[in-house]
Design a protein around this nucleic acid. Structure first.
Lengths: 151, 151
DNA sequence: TTGGGTGCAAAGGCTTTGCATGTGA
DNA sequence: TCACATGCAAAGCCTTTGCACCCAA
């Protein structure tokens, strides 16, 4: 989706919420770097450069709001921080998240798009009667760059 | 795997660690209910019933130890608690975790075994050169029981 | 005996909340 | 104007750590 400030304005107004500089700034910061995953602190530092009055609590509240609106996706790597990334077009269209590839050596996080999970979900529905609505897939391993270094 | 106290004794001795009543009690509590996912607090309450002197810090330290030894698996449902379950035989044999099905209505967590992800992992290796070593799959939706209630 | 293990309490660290002030609409 | 949003600081909450005591080996 890669939201633009204008789309955010529409969405907020439509919900009776206010368009503030902080909200625009935070969304813009995330939208400028799609595919990257930021902690609240990183967003804070990043946005604070241009808006020194920003408070960390506002970042948390705004991210929460964006998450509820479906503008950002959360990612938990179990390192004590929750990370956020701008939601992607594909997410909105298919209602499916992409998969995250996490390199155990360099920590790099990348994404991979694949519909293979739909077959798995169909199987689960048939065998267990469990209706899958959403999924989160994290694959841990070694990225191509790290493999190259070792070899 | 469903560890027995005897197997734990062997494993600890072999690592030069001590066999304590607390460690045995915690492992037994988890092994008694395979497939269930407990928070540290739940383990604490559960074991404390039979061992009133138990401290919560010991639960955290023991769980950490068991996790390092591969005796328990962690599960993070992003609700603020990390959960633990006794490691399963299948995990040890194939080196692959099972998938977790999480019902958004009743919160029930169940497991599903499937090798479909291997095809996905093969594809990722071919296309991206990323070597997958481990994965975590969480599927959110509605369980059969909750679906039945609604219909 | 003795070094790892435990219990208790305090400290950590990320996130949320309360409250007075600020600001879009 | 006025309800929502923000900033700051304090509080929450799960988890970890420090330290003296304890106990398995």
């Amino acid at each position: 989706m890669t939201e633009t400030p204008e789309q955010l304005r529409q969405l907020l107004k439509q919900k009776g919420l206010k368009v503030t500089t902080q909200r625009i700034a935070i969304l813009t910061a995330l939208a400028d770097r799609p595919g990257e995953h930021f902690t609240a602190e990183e967003i804070y530092d990043c946005v604070k450069a241009g808006h020194p009055e920003l408070g960390l609590a506002t970042v948390y509240r705004t991210i929460q709001l964006f998450s509820d609106l479906g503008l950002v996706d959360r990612l938990n790597l179990d390192d004590g921080y929750v990370r956020y990334e701008i939601s992607r077009e594909s997410t909105k269209v298919h209602g499916h998240h992409h998969h995250h590839l996490i390199c155990l050596e360099c920590g790099q996080v990348s994404a991979f798009q694949d519909d293979l999970l739909e077959a798995l979900e169909a199987r689960i529905r048939e065998q267990l009667g469990f209706e899958v609505l959403d999924h989160e897939v994290k694959l841990y391993g070694r990225c191509a760059a790290c493999k190259r270094k070792t070899e």
